[in-house]
């Protein structure tokens, strides 16, 4: 019980030039949680992720990773990251699923070492965990957006991180495959014990998968477990969230309050 939270953010504020993007954020991700971090575009979600990952420097407040202050944190291979696919990847690249997942071990293996039989097993296990074992020898470019995103998750978990951070992972995923995509994430969380931090602008569809919710829009408007979140009514949500919230899930008692 006394394990420190995987991620703990204390009094963090951040500004680009004069614009305040984040204001006094307190957030903790307990071990084993599946936290949905929700907020509209421009709410500071990506900035917060960059601060956690050390891609931006924390100037005000503190970030702790596994109980260690971020500044002295060294075990970055305990943290897996999956970005919005469209960012950086060239779909015409002639690489097989196996090769892409294997590239997730590059840092862990270190210079000059080549993957041995232990690593080969880890690669196969990671591909199985995301349900893509039938595609091992296919070229990554032949897969659909959702399948590619699963492969990127396999690449992130092949080095066996404790936490996986996902930034809007369903951007390129077909709407009819989104449900099974989140089921796969729930499997990683419940069966493999990986803590998940999922950034999205759409809480509706994940509401029956996540264990915790945080609503961000410059300020942190709500942070708590899913049970607490569900006791809030639509008006509370709109107030908390500033803009109103996209709540379109499978239980139709909530109606969408889109703005």
């Amino acid at each position: 019980m006394n394990q420190p939270p995987v991620i703990e953010i204390k009094n963090v504020s951040y500004r680009y030039d004069r614009d305040n993007v984040l204001e006094n954020i307190q957030l903790s991700v307990p071990k084993g949680a599946f936290l949905g971090l929700v907020g509209p575009n421009g709410s500071g979600k990506s900035t917060l992720l960059k601060l956690i990952l050390g891609l931006l420097k924390v100037k005000e407040g503190e970030v702790f990773l596994f109980g260690t202050p971020q500044k002295s944190f060294k075990n970055w291979d305990r943290i897996g990251f999956v970005s919005q696919k469209a960012n950086s990847f060239n779909t015409g690249f002639p690489a097989t699923v196996y090769e892409v997942v294997a590239s997730g071990l590059t840092k862990k293996l270190g210079l000059f070492r080549r993957p041995g039989s232990k690593e080969k097993q880890a690669i196969k296990a990671a591909v199985e965990a995301v349900g893509m074992e039938a595609f091992l020898t296919r070229n990554i470019g032949e897969l659909s957006g959702g399948q590619q995103q699963r492969i990127f998750i396999a690449r992130a978990i092949v080095s066996k991180p404790d936490i996986l951070i996902l930034d809007e992972p369903t951007v390129g995923v077909d709407s009819k495959n989104v449900e099974s995509f989140y089921n796969m994430l729930a499997y990683l969380n419940q069966q493999m014990g990986i803590t998940l931090l999922l950034v999205t602008h759409d809480i509706g569809i994940i509401s029956d998968k996540v264990t915790h919710v945080a609503c961000l829009n410059k300020y942190l408007h709500f942070h708590g477990s899913m049970q607490q979140f569900e006791t809030l009514d639509e008006e509370d949500l709109s107030d908390l969230y500033g803009h109103g919230i996209h709540l379109l899930d499978h239980h139709h008692e909530h109606q969408g309050a889109d703005v």
Binding site: S88, S103, T106, L111, F112, P115
Partner: peptide, 21 residues
């Protein structure tokens, strides 16, 4: 000797940088 680093750099330069190689 540098095959896996060269591969990662070619496939996904941003990820290569972020992963600390």
């Amino acid at each position: 000797l540098l095959y896996k680093e060269l591969f990662l750099l070619s496939f996904d330069e941003e990820h290569a940088k972020a992963s600390g190689i």
